[in-house]
Computed example of a mutant assay.
Amino acid sequence: MGKLKLFGFASFLVFFFDACTVHETKSEIPTLSIDLDQVRKGKASDYFESVDYLWFEDESSEDASIGVFHRVIKHKGRFYIFDEDICICFYIFSEDGKFIKKIKGYGEGPGEYMSPSVFLIQNDTILLNDISQKKILSYDLDGNWLEDGEQRLPANEVHLDSKGNEYYFSRSYMLNNTKNQVRVFDKHGHLKFVGFPYKDEFLGLNVVNRKPFVELSGGVVLVDDYIDTLYIIDQYVEKPFLAFDFKDKGYKSKDLERLKDLDVMEQLEFLNKKTPLYFDGRAVLSERFFIGSFRFQEKSVIGVYDFENHVSSTFDFGVINDLDQGKVIYGLSPLDQESVYSWTTGIDLYKHVESLKRTMSKEEWQKYVKGEGSNLVNTAIRAKESENRVLIIFKWK
């Protein structure tokens, strides 16, 4: 594994769209306008060219039953799934959803972990960071433990880019001797970048974003909560990437000052029902699209920016899957550079298919099963009694 050091990372559930279109005003920085007066329904076909389904089969072994998706990695014809809360383990499934292995090593000895966080694959090596023991465990692609390594520094999330650079994101409680959230080391371990000061005024309001770093062709984008501008780190220099226009509904200094005087229950009341408009840190990105989740008081909306056409859209929560009449989509997470995913259970997917069937004539149903609904229906029938996860995989346009 070399001397790679890591810490804190995962995946995060993300959300969706519904369409209202606003063309960007002239600006040097692309700007996404969140217009709460122009919120509409959105369609998956506006952003994705196809949808696919994969059931993680749980018939062969009890170990195949998945707890929580914190990170799903597709690598060399396999799926690697990390659950840091329920089973505190990771799973390996084949490309067609067959269970291969469950890897669990809770403890304090070599090859064991207590509080795993980072989960990623680099150079055909699986890396799992243990926060409490400040070490990184490495495994081969079959899940066999190789060695324990030493982490470089504490962090909440870590990313490794395609050039071997290491990106560390830390909340203020992790590092008391620095005023910045992000540090970047090159592949030789040299510190090349320190930036993004802590937002002390938001310390009590942090949203848990399990994937703040997203690599695009131009660099690595930092996707953090409560910000009004996303930045890209290119050649160890930060540059504005996408600004948010909250239409005078965003946080103001008086809101932040007021928060400091609230007790815990009052803060929760404010967060759940009275918040100004803000970005909650959850998003998926491609070279063309940004799709992010925004909250205003008791309502969540989706903001979409099309970098190719310089267009902003504000959507209702929930995406209409018009690609194959599948389930409405309420959460998206990154899978690879070409795809994102949502998920459901086999039981719920089958219920959706049965509901669709009741709305169609016999002729319409036969046409649907042989056409656009073929993969959806076949997967639902196979998984109809399973509570295990079915990935719903969307390929970017």
Rank of each mutant, 00 (worst) to 15 (best):
Q181T: 05
P197C: 03
V208R: 15
R152V: 06
S138L: 04
L137A: 06
Y139K: 05
Y167F: 10
G149N: 02
G164D: 08
F213C: 04
K199E: 14
E157G: 07
R183D: 06
L160Y: 00
Y139N: 02
V208S: 15
K134Q: 14
Y139W: 08
S172A: 15
G143C: 05
V214H: 10
F169E: 02
P197G: 00
H190V: 13
Y168F: 13
K187S: 12
R210Y: 15
P154N: 08
L175C: 10
Q181K: 12
K192P: 04
P154M: 05
L137G: 02
F185K: 01
K134M: 14
E150I: 06
A155I: 01
E147P: 00
D200F: 11
L153A: 09
N177M: 10
R171I: 13
N156F: 09
G218Q: 10
L160P: 00
R183G: 00
G143W: 06
V214T: 09
N180L: 07
L205H: 13
L175M: 15
I131M: 08
D142E: 15
V184L: 05
D200V: 13
G218H: 07
N129W: 00
D140Q: 11
W145M: 04
E150L: 07
L153N: 02
D186C: 06
E201C: 11
G143M: 03
L127V: 03
H190A: 11
E166I: 08
R210S: 14
W145C: 03
Y173G: 12
G143P: 01
L141G: 05
E201Y: 09
R171C: 13
E147H: 11
L191A: 03
F196L: 02
F169H: 08
L175A: 09
Y168W: 08
N144Y: 11
I131E: 05
D161N: 13
W145G: 01
V214L: 08
D140A: 13
L175S: 06
P212N: 08
N180E: 12
H190K: 12
D142M: 12
K179V: 07
K179H: 13
K179G: 12
K192S: 04
K211A: 10
E166Q: 12
E147N: 13
L191Y: 04
Y168H: 03
L141Q: 09
E166S: 10
L203Y: 15
Q181D: 09
E150P: 02
N206A: 15
L203P: 03
V207E: 15
E157K: 11
N209A: 14
L160Q: 03
F169G: 02
I131P: 00
D142N: 13
L128T: 00
V194D: 08
A155N: 00
P197L: 04
N206W: 15
L146H: 07
H159F: 14
E166F: 05
R210W: 14
F193K: 02
Y167R: 04
S170P: 05
L191K: 04
L175Q: 11
P154S: 10
Q133N: 10
D140E: 12
K192G: 06
G149C: 00
Y198C: 04
S172P: 12
N144G: 11
